[in-house]
C-alpha cells in the first residue's frame, strides 16, 4: 500500500506548471566539471601551500602558546601588559624575532586557510575573485604594518 504523505503534483489545484514538453529546470551542482574544465597550470603552488600549512602549524603551536603564556599567565597575567612591558620586550632582538616570525606565519597560515575556504564555498567566479583580492589586500596590509611597527618601534616616543 502506498500512503502518500505529500503529493508530487503542484499544490495549485492539481494543475502543474510543467509537463512532458516543458519540464522543470533541474538543479545543477556548483562549478560542474565539463570537458573544457581541465586547464593544467603545471605549478607546485598547491603542493607548497599544503606543506606550508603543516610546517607553519607546528611552529605556530610553540610560538602562540609561548606568547599566550607570557602575555596572559606568567608574572601577574594580562594586567602587567602595558607600553612599558612591550617596550621592554622589544628591546631584545630575540622577542622582536619571535613576534615577527609569529606575525608572518600566523597571517600567511590564516590567509591560506581562508583562501581554501573561499575556494570551497564561493561559487561564482566574480565572488571568488573579489573575496580573494580582499583577503590578499588585508593580509598584505596587516603583515606590512606589523613588520613596520616591530622594526621602527621607538620606546621614547613622547
Amino acid at each position: 500500500m502506498s500512503a502518500d504523505t505529500s503529493s508530487a503534483v503542484d499544490p495549485v489545484e492539481g494543475v502543474s506548471l510543467y509537463d512532458v514538453d516543458n519540464p522543470a529546470p533541474v538543479i545543477e551542482p556548483p562549478r560542474k566539471r565539463t570537458k573544457k574544465t581541465p586547464k593544467s597550470t603545471r605549478t607546485n603552488f598547491e603542493l607548497y601551500g599544503w606543506l606550508f600549512m603543516r610546517l607553519s602549524g607546528v611552529v605556530l603551536v610553540v610560538l602562540v602558546l609561548g606568547h599566550l603564556l607570557i602575555q596572559l599567565v606568567l608574572d601577574g597575567g594580562v594586567s602587567k601588559v602595558g607600553f612599558a612591558f612591550v617596550a621592554g620586550r622589544w628591546a631584545s632582538p630575540f622577542w622582536q624575532g619571535w613576534d615577527l616570525l609569529m606575525l608572518w606565519l600566523a597571517m600567511l597560515h590564516g590567509a591560506n586557510g581562508l583562501r581554501t575556504v573561499i575556494n570551497d564555498y564561493a561559487e561564482r567566479p566574480k565572488t571568488r575573485f573579489w573575496l580573494k583580492n580582499l583577503l590578499y589586500a588585508a593580509t598584505v596590509f596587516t603583515v606590512l604594518l606589523g613588520t613596520l611597527v616591530i622594526f621602527t618601534f621607538d620606546p621614547n616616543i613622547r
Binding site: A3, D4, V9, D10, Y18, V20, A24
Partner: peptide, 17 residues
Amino acid sequence: RRFNPEISDQATWQDFQ
C-alpha cells in the same frame, strides 16, 4: 525522495508501506 521535472520543480518525500 521523489522528483519529476515533468510534474513539479520541487522534490518531495513519499512514503510506501
